[in-house]
Amino acid sequence: MSAANDARATASNAVGRDPDSREIGRVIVRDVVKEYQTPIGVKRVLDGISFEVGPGEKIAVLGRNGAGKSTLVRIIGGVETPSSGKVSCGLRMSWPVAFSGGFDNNMTGLDAIRFIAGLYGVPREEAVGVVDDFAEIGRYLQLPIGTYSSGMRARLAFGLTLAVDFECVLIDEVISVGDQRFRNKCHNELFVKRGDKAMILISHDPGIIRTYCQRALVLKNGRGRVFDDLDQALGIYSTL
């Protein structure tokens, strides 16, 4: 059986992501190209995207619908691999904040917390405390997620992101659900309490971008350029 185990260990690395990127301490996206086969031919969704994020740096990603933002998120998140180019993730990267696709409707809120705590090696009680504190769904935590309203789901998913100590937070569209109070709370947790974390922030909100980001990546038709001057980036974005 040991031969089988060896084969499996090697194999899991062959299919998994590059482990040698750990040491670098930065998120590096280099010359990433993503092409999809479609019935009308090959479509190039991302065309040579490059940028880097160091510890504590915050970069905004701007682009109209269809510019390739979601594809970029999936590639940075590790769900898809680039057709060419390389993503190396030297910071502990979060899943997209408030993304709830990984939970099954049969799981209760508590199950979801235990799952995340198990995956990331966070003590369970601590994780339950953080999520319970943030999501304010109380005893609903004991019910299957399938019975939740969309707002409760979002609060749970958001709370789960907070339970793990990430070095780089991936944010796809800051909180489009929930009421004003919830949004304020999210805002506080992300940008005030986690102000020292690196962030990749996909947003249409010029206010947030101006306040928190140092740089912006502007995407258009799959091509991208990084601007150090936010006003210039937002200016170009508004003319797209």
Binding site: R8, V15, G16, R17, G77, V79, G101, G102, L119
Partner: peptide, 17 residues
């Protein structure tokens, strides 16, 4: 399995195993 791959320490083979 794809939605689980957002968790960076989850690899496809882990899911299959």
């Amino acid at each position: 399995a794809s939605s689980l791959l957002y968790h960076r320490n989850v690899r496809l083979l882990d899911i299959l195993i």
